[in-house]
Every structure is written in structure tokens, then in C-alpha cells.
């Protein structure tokens, strides 16, 4: 159901929250019924209870969390983000259909901040396979914050996305000027179709008299070393 040990993550997050929020807010959160009865409302309401500051990364609970779940860049999560993840972790995951329908309904009426944390939380949802199309949908977004939530230090896409959706993610990241260095799985998921698309894109850029992110060359070189070399030269000459 879960691809990690939720029994470790849940208390680890609670420990950070206990340290970082008022006792009134923390009590509100942990006193909510389990599973949450009104997740869409409480997910929003949490913003009135928890701060958008980052937790102190030097505290013992935060260090523990970062050590146990190293694939997530917890330093970029706010206290509110953690509280919302905590709420999501309280959902009853026994029935896949009910569980995914509930989370989808939260997605469907989320505001900008909520969307961002929902996508950041993808690796921690049960039934990993079930979120492929949701993740692909997020990649179609034009909201930079949403794209970054999926692309940066998020282990979901490289593990679960089918090749076509993965390639869209990389192409979109380049097209929107994202830092490829923060995307997990760049090398492992590299493929010939992606490399061919990137070379086409490079030619387009060249024709338009525009530059290109040099991070594409290591991806194309694996499959098309010669063409990559030629194009790199042409970009240099254009300068």
C-alpha cells in the first residue's frame, strides 16, 4: 500500500510539528478524528493554524526526519506543508478507490499553496501507481510553483511515470527554465525518444537565435554523440 514505513513518518512529522507550532494548533491537529471526516475543509483551515515559516533544521526531530526520509528535501517544506502532509497521512488507505477519490477531491478544489503541497506529497501517497495521471496532469500546469513541486527533489516522477509522461516533464522543465540539477532520476530515466526530442528542440532554438540550457547535452550525448557535438559547436558559433 505504502512504499515506505508510514508508522515511522507519521510520528516523525508530528514530532517536528509539536516543536514548531503553538500547543493550541498542535492539539487541534492531533485531536481531529482519524480518519479525517472533512479533509477538504481542514486542509484549508490548517493555514489559519500553522506558519509558512520553515522549521528549524537543527532541531532533533527535523534531523531525524531528514535522516529517515532522505529523498525529500525537507528544508523546503514549511510548517504548514508538514501539517497538511500529516492530515493526508491520517486518511484511511484500506480501500484504494475511496482513498484515491478522497485525495482527488482535495486536488480538485485546491488553491495554489494546497496544490503545491499535494504534488510535493506524491511520494507519500498509498498506491503509487494510482497517481500517474494526476502527476502528468500537474506537469501540464502553467503554474511555476506547481511545476517545481513535481520537478524538484520529488522522487515520485522518476519512479512511477511512464516514459512519455517522464519525457514531457523533462521537456517542460527545460522549456520553462527549471534547474535540471534538482530533478531526480535524470540519468536513469534518460531514453532515446527524449534525446531525439531534445535535439529537435535544440535545432528550434538555434533557428530562433536563442540559447539553450547546457544541461541537455549530457542527455542527448548518450544516444546521439555526433549530432550533439555538431549542435554544441553551432551554438558556440552563434555566440
Amino acid at each position: 500500500m505504502f512504499a515506505y514505513t508510514i508508522e515511522i513518518l507519521r510520528p516523525a512529522i508530528a514530532a517536528v510539528l509539536k516543536e514548531e507550532s503553538s500547543s493550541e494548533s498542535f492539539t487541534w491537529l492531533v485531536a481531529l478524528p482519524v480518519p479525517p471526516q472533512n479533509i477538504t475543509r481542514d486542509f484549508s483551515f490548517a493555514s489559519r493554524k500553522f506558519s509558512k515559516q520553515r522549521p528549524a533544521s537543527s532541531s532533533a526531530p527535523h534531523i531525524y526526519l531528514a535522516e529517515k526520509f532522505q529523498r525529500t528535501h525537507w528544508h523546503s517544506w514549511t510548517i504548514l506543508d508538514l501539517a497538511r502532509l500529516y492530515l493526508l497521512l491520517q486518511l484511511n488507505a484500506a480501500n484504494e478507490q475511496e482513498y484515491t477519490t478522497t485525495i482527488e477531491s482535495v486536488f480538485n478544489q485546491a488553491d495554489l499553496g494546497e496544490l503545491t503541497i499535494l504534488y510535493k506529497a506524491l511520494p507519500y501517497f498509498a498506491y503509487g501507481k494510482a497517481w500517474e495521471s494526476r502527476c502528468a496532469e500537474g506537469i501540464r500546469s502553467n503554474m511555476g510553483t506547481v511545476l517545481e513541486a513535481i520537478m524538484y527533489e520529488n522522487s515520485y516522477p522518476s519512479v512511477h511515470l511512464p516514459e512519455a509522461a517522464w519525457n514531457q516533464l523533462i521537456l517542460k522543465a527545460i522549456f520553462t527554465g527549471k534547474d535540471l540539477g534538482r530533478i531526480y532520476g535524470l540519468e536513469e530515466r534518460n531514453n532515446a525518444a527524449l534525446a531525439a526530442s531534445l535535439l529537435d528542440y535544440a535545432e528550434e532554438r538555434l533557428a530562433a537565435g536563442r540559447n539553450i540550457d547546457a544541461a541537455v547535452w549530457p542527455l542527448t550525448k548518450v544516444f546521439y554523440p555526433e549530432k550533439t557535438g555538431v549542435l554544441q559547436q553551432r551554438f558556440l558559433q552563434e555566440k
Binding site: 480538485n108 478544489q109 485546491a110 488553491d111 495554489l112 496544490l115 502553467n142 503554474m143 511555476g144
Partner: peptide, 18 residues
């Protein structure tokens, strides 16, 4: 209505911020 409210809180908020 639901989509309209969501767009005020999502897309339009983002667009304005840009």
C-alpha cells in the same frame, strides 16, 4: 462555480504574483 472559485485561488493568484 467550483472551478471559478478554484481559479481565483490558484491560477489568478499565480498570474498576479508574476
Amino acid at each position: 462555480f467550483k472551478d471559478y472559485y478554484s481559479s481565483l485561488l490558484g491560477w489568478e493568484r499565480f498570474r498576479s504574483g508574476q
